[in-house]
Design a protein around this nucleic acid. Structure first.
Length: 429
DNA sequence: CCTGATGATTCGTT
DNA sequence: AACGAATCATCAGG
């Protein structure tokens, strides 16, 4: 118990005024507004601290003891209590009961959502999965990245929790320490339980602000991790061949109006194992790039058109089919196009081409069929390159302004899954 | 490493 | 809200 006074000295700055062992300057607090004067004060204090010796400490101890044993002590103590009561009352109310910090709540919510502060393993993986879905990943092929992401996330989580624990422990230690000090001091000066309570709350507030910093930096770390691992733009992956083919089939078989409905997009997304947004992106890119340089896409267009036409022809020749030209999954994607087939088709189609289907109220399937067949025709017709074919398509799909014509397309038109009662390819037969 | 292809994003327009 | 156009950022082949 010899070092008790030393401790009291070192913690005097926390806010315990009026300690008898302190030099006069320290008890005056911030009374002097003059900066120079304050500097002078600090200088004096430092000087006095430097000159503190064991001897002077002993002296102080002795003086304290003498004070405690003074006959007037109980009376003085009571007076002090009264004064204290009044001042404390006036201090209180000014800074008390602050509402829960909205920023802290935001941070808490985010950490919970990211699975950092939630229940052990489930939250983390759920959040990762949700993030993966949001980023539009194609599931299996980037699962490795996700496991990496999860690993990093749990690392952050672990650091966060150990740090939090450390802070809490330190907070508790410091609180008990301060309470012990106050209890010790309550023998020489009046300290109400309320005051102790207030002191504790001040300490807790201080520590909670440190905690908030911890939470904030954790959030930042998670955000960086997310952007690093899940930002699809940074980690762009080309769609697989099958998906591209499915999309191209649809695009070229609906060349007159390559704007898939919401349902069609969903269908395509499901088939290609990508998101609807990615389908929209793809069609947006495709339309603009096709329009910009039709010549470049000629070959591709012919290929897909012919393939689709063959599928349609095969389907219609078999009579019973609820198949759509845009989804030739089984027949189209695997095998290569058989040119000898297209000859038959060409013959059967030519008459159709001659009719003026252009603005008519044709069913969507018919329309797409026409698109497809025109490609076949133009291909078999033997144009050289680019512009010739360009002119062939131009009146069909793209209007004078360079945009696609405003063809009325009911939902069943663009949707690849149509009802069984549709006219479909019977017309081409 | 360079270059074209390609998926995603941004911004203005309708 | 959907689209077009421009642009960015990455991939992939030479």
């Amino acid at each position: 118990m010899d070092e008790q006074p030393r401790l009291m000295h070192s913690h005097a700055g926390v806010g315990m005024a009026g300690h008898p062992g302190l030099p006069q300057h320290m008890q005056e607090g911030g009374g002097a507004t003059d900066a120079d004067g304050r500097k002078q004060d600090i200088g004096d204090i430092l000087q006095q601290i430097m000159t503190i010796t064991d001897q002077s400490l002993d002296e102080a101890q002795a003086r304290k003891h003498a004070l405690n044993c003074h006959r007037m002590k109980p009376a003085l103590f009571n007076v002090l209590c009264e004064i204290k009561e009044k001042t404390v009352l006036s201090i209180r109310g000014a800074q008390e009961e602050e509402p829960p910090d909205p920023q802290l709540m935001r941070l808490d919510n985010m950490l919970l959502a990211e699975g950092v502060s939630g229940p052990e393993k489930g939250g983390g993986s759920a959040a990762a999965a949700a993030a993966a879905a949001a980023s539009g990943g194609a599931g299996a092929d980037n699962s490795a990245e996700h496991s990496d992401y999860r690993a990093k996330l749990s690392q952050i989580r672990q650091i966060y929790h150990t740090e939090l624990e450390k802070y809490e422990q330190a907070c508790n230690e410091f609180t008990t320490h301060v309470m012990n000090l106050l209890r010790e001091q309550s023998r020489t000066r009046p300290i109400s339980p309320k005051e102790i309570e207030r002191m504790v709350s001040i300490i807790h507030r201080k520590f909670s602000s440190i905690q908030m910093q911890l939470k904030q930096s954790t959030c930042e770390a998670v955000m960086i991790l997310r952007s690093r691992f899940l930002d699809a733009r940074r980690k762009r992956r080309n769609f697989n061949k099958q998906a591209t083919e499915i999309l191209n089939e649809y695009f070229y078989s609906h060349l007159s109006n390559p704007y898939p409905s919401e349902e069609a997009k969903e269908e395509l997304a499901k088939k290609c194992a990508i998101t609807v947004a990615q389908v929209s992106n793809w069609f947006g890119n495709k339309r603009i790039r096709y329009k910009k340089n039709i010549g470049k896409f000629q070959e591709e267009a012919n290929m897909y058109a012919a393939r689709t036409a063959v599928n349609a022809a095969n389907a219609s020749s078999h009579g019973s089919q609820a198949n759509s030209p845009s989804t030739p999954n089984s027949a189209g994607s695997a095998g290569s196009f058989n040119m000898s087939n297209s000859g038959d088709l060409f013959m059967s189609v030519q008459s159709l081409n001659g009719d003026s289907y252009q603005g008519a109220q044709v069913g969507a399937n018919v329309q797409s069929q026409v698109d497809t067949l025109r490609h076949v025709i133009s291909q078999t017709g033997g144009y050289s390159e680019g512009l010739t074919a360009n002119q062939m398509y131009s009146p069909q799909g793209i209007n004078a302004n360079g945009g696609w014509q405003d063809a009325p397309t009911p939902s069943s038109v663009t949707s690849p899954t149509e009802g069984p009662g549709s006219v479909h390819s019977d017309t081409s037969n």
